[in-house]
Computed example of a mutant assay.
Amino acid sequence: MRIENSFIPVRGVGAKTERRLWEHGITHWDDFDGSVVGETTARRIAEFVDEAAPRLADGDARFFDGAFPSKERWRLYENFRDSTCFFDIETTGLDAARNDVTTVTFHRGDETTTLVQGDDLTAATLREQFAPADLIVSFNGKRFDVPFLEQSFDLTIDVPHVDLMYPCKRLGLTGGLKQVEKDVGIERDRPDLSGRDAVRLWRQYERGDDAALDTLVSYNRDDTENLRTLMDLVTESLHDETFVGSA
């Protein structure tokens, strides 16, 4: 589903009204002719489209991040797919005040980059990675990854953000990322590794085991690259569940 198929950002338009529009063949902003809904709602839709169309042409993801209800922000992905950045962090624990970020991986397009503590993981390099993104995607990143990075590196990460944990729950996919991957058939090279192993591997690396760092980086990269596959599956499923018409 694309942004221009959506009417739900308009004040007074809920899921039922949006679906009624679609069922009457109004599946795109260009199809809207003022029919199906009342005069006030029709005016609001027309005003929204007049403002939103040039914003979309300009690639203004922030505008749509603010316009869409939080549970519907997955709809931004198709329009901003090429400038979406998937990311995941590994840490030595759950408390940003006492624990450290060890690796952070970013995946966009065909490129994957991993930053490592003590090497190239700094506030500046994190800003460089987030800066080009119109949309970022994580799993539980709103509650964990983003606050952890912001506190650890004195950052503000305000890029439009889809946390896949929530649309996954909407589809009945619960548990952590590894469980969700298993449920949808995404395979890993090392399915035996977990977050606890990530802590252990970092400690081994600190004691001089370079191979442990290689394994940790590979694990972090799997987490991140698999987010793209999961995002594609989730948005396709939500499209099929939500949309009436042909996108």
Rank of each mutant, 00 (worst) to 15 (best):
L21S: 07
A124R: 13
E111M: 13
G109M: 06
V116K: 03
F243M: 03
D82Q: 09
L227G: 13
G59V: 10
D65K: 05
G176L: 11
P132I: 02
V104K: 00
D189K: 14
T114R: 12
D192I: 13
M165E: 15
A52V: 08
T125H: 09
F153N: 06
E128L: 12
R188T: 01
T113F: 07
D192F: 11
N226D: 11
D119V: 14
D222S: 15
T102K: 05
T27G: 12
L177K: 00
D163I: 11
R143E: 13
V146F: 07
D145Y: 03
E39C: 05
T91R: 05
T113G: 06
R203N: 10
D33G: 14
G172F: 04
M165V: 15
K178M: 11
H28L: 12
V137S: 07
R200D: 14
V13E: 05
P147F: 08
S83W: 03
A52C: 05
P191R: 09
R200A: 15
V137M: 11
H28Y: 12
E18K: 10
L56C: 00
G175P: 07
F80L: 06
N226Q: 13
F32A: 00
D232Q: 14
I89R: 06
L171P: 02
N99I: 01
D50H: 14
E111V: 15
G93Y: 03
R170L: 07
K142L: 14
D240G: 01
P132V: 06
F87E: 08
F148E: 09
G34E: 02
Y166W: 15
E23K: 14
L149H: 10
R62N: 10
G66T: 01
G109R: 06
D240K: 13
A46H: 04
V37M: 03
R62E: 14
L155S: 11
G93V: 01
V244G: 00
P191G: 07
G93W: 05
Q117T: 11
R44F: 00
R143F: 01
A212C: 06
G25T: 10
N220A: 12
G34L: 05
L56P: 06
N140I: 06
T103V: 12
G208T: 05
Q204I: 00
T113C: 12
T215H: 04
D95G: 02
N220W: 09
A123P: 09
R55S: 07
R221Y: 01
V37T: 10
T224Y: 03
K182M: 13
L126Q: 09
A52Q: 08
H28A: 14
T41D: 11
G12R: 07
T84G: 01
I136V: 15
G195S: 08
G195V: 09
L76Y: 01
E181Q: 11
R228S: 13
P160W: 02
R44K: 12
E111D: 15
L238R: 05
T92C: 00
F148I: 11
H24W: 00
Q129M: 15
R75E: 01
G34Q: 02
S6G: 04
R81W: 11
E187G: 08
L213D: 00
F80C: 02
E90Q: 11
I8R: 04
M231H: 00
V162F: 09
